[in-house]
């Protein structure tokens, strides 16, 4: 995951590499994602999140849709 000054810079970067747009979102959302994902990482009882738990962290940061889906769709 990379950081850019603005959406415009994301578009320029993608165009220069002929890449398709993935998912762009605010750094506030990235901060929410980082907290949901990493705040318990030093807990000795930490374990990897299940796909359901991971999707819940994504959703809490406002990241939903096919790009963020880990479970097969119904």
């Amino acid at each position: 995951m990379l950081a850019f000054r603005s959406e415009e810079h994301v578009d320029w970067w993608l165009a220069a590499r002929r890449l398709r747009r993935g998912s762009a979102f605010t750094l506030e959302q990235a901060w929410s994602l980082a907290n949901g994902w990493y705040s318990d990482r030093l807990d000795p009882a930490w374990r990897r999140k299940t796909p359901e738990e991971a999707e819940a962290v994504f959703a809490a940061a406002g990241l939903t849709g096919d790009f963020w889906r880990l479970r097969p769709s119904d």
């Binding site: 950081a3 850019f4 959406e7 993935g22 605010t26 959302q29 990235a30 096919d66 790009f67 880990l70």
Partner: peptide, 22 residues
């Protein structure tokens, strides 16, 4: 980007993920 007291400062930028989560 600064984090102070659990809050993001200078958060004007954009993050981009190229590859879907799966």
């Amino acid at each position: 980007i600064r984090v102070r007291n659990g809050e993001l400062r200078d958060g004007d930028g954009v993050a981009h993920f190229a590859v879907p989560a799966a």
